[in-house]
């Protein structure tokens, strides 16, 4: 079975951990608990032509208040090493987190030019507070896809992970294996 490493990255409190928990365990917890470091979980998924194991790294959030060159800490860099794909997460109700995602994306595409990335505008259940409008995708050139998701309702969560998993396993000749 092939295995792919997938990293979740974005500003703090955008719902990265909730998205992973929703996808892997099918649950949601209202409480906000900061992640400091990285939580790693796996899920085996049935794709179009194969079964694959997704190893998901839920990486601690960046602080939008940090300067752009300090957004990515050395810890984050250690976690990102060898990743096959990136799920950039922003909170659709907090425009500042989209700016953070954009800055991270800029850095990421320079460091990992051939690794695909998708953007998740999370918290789509908060319709009244939704603030991601026209122009929010500016500065994300080359992005694989953008999804609006809700870890609370589960909207688009499975679809997004599977979409990226399909994209990452298209290259059948990739080295795989799980020691």
């Amino acid at each position: 079975m092939i295995s792919r490493k997938l990293c979740l990255l974005g500003a703090f409190a955008v719902g990265k951990t909730s998205l992973m928990r929703r996808f892997v365990k099918g649950v949601f917890d209202e409480r906000y608990i900061t992640t400091l470091g990285v939580k790693i979980d796996t899920k085996t998924v049935e794709l179009e032509n194969q079964t694959a194991k997704l190893v998901i790294w839920d990486i601690e959030g960046a602080d939008p208040a940090d300067r752009e060159n300090q957004l990515i800490s050395s810890r984050m860099k250690a976690y990102l090493a060898g990743t096959d794909g990136l799920l950039l997460v922003a909170d659709g109700t907090r425009p500042v987190t989209i700016d953070t995602a954009r800055a991270i994306y800029r850095w990421f595409t320079a460091e990992f030019p051939s690794v695909p990335a998708a953007l998740l505008l999370n918290k789509s259940d908060l319709v009244d507070e939704w603030a991601a409008g026209e122009g929010c995708l500016d500065g994300f050139d080359g992005l694989l896809q953008c999804f609006t998701t809700s870890a609370l309702s589960g909207e688009n969560v499975e679809r997004t992970f599977l979409y990226l998993a399909e994209a990452l396993t298209k290259d059948e000749n990739r080295a795989d294996g799980d020691s």
């Binding site: 470091g37 790693i40 190893v55 799980d178």
Partner: peptide, 24 residues
């Protein structure tokens, strides 16, 4: 366990020690 295996898989087999802080 899975989390640690994932860390190992990320690390190339070299003599150099690799350090990963704060793994849950």
């Amino acid at each position: 366990p899975e989390a640690l295996r994932a860390v190992l898989n990320t690390t190339p087999q070299s003599r150099q020690t690799r350090f990963f802080p704060y793994i849950y």
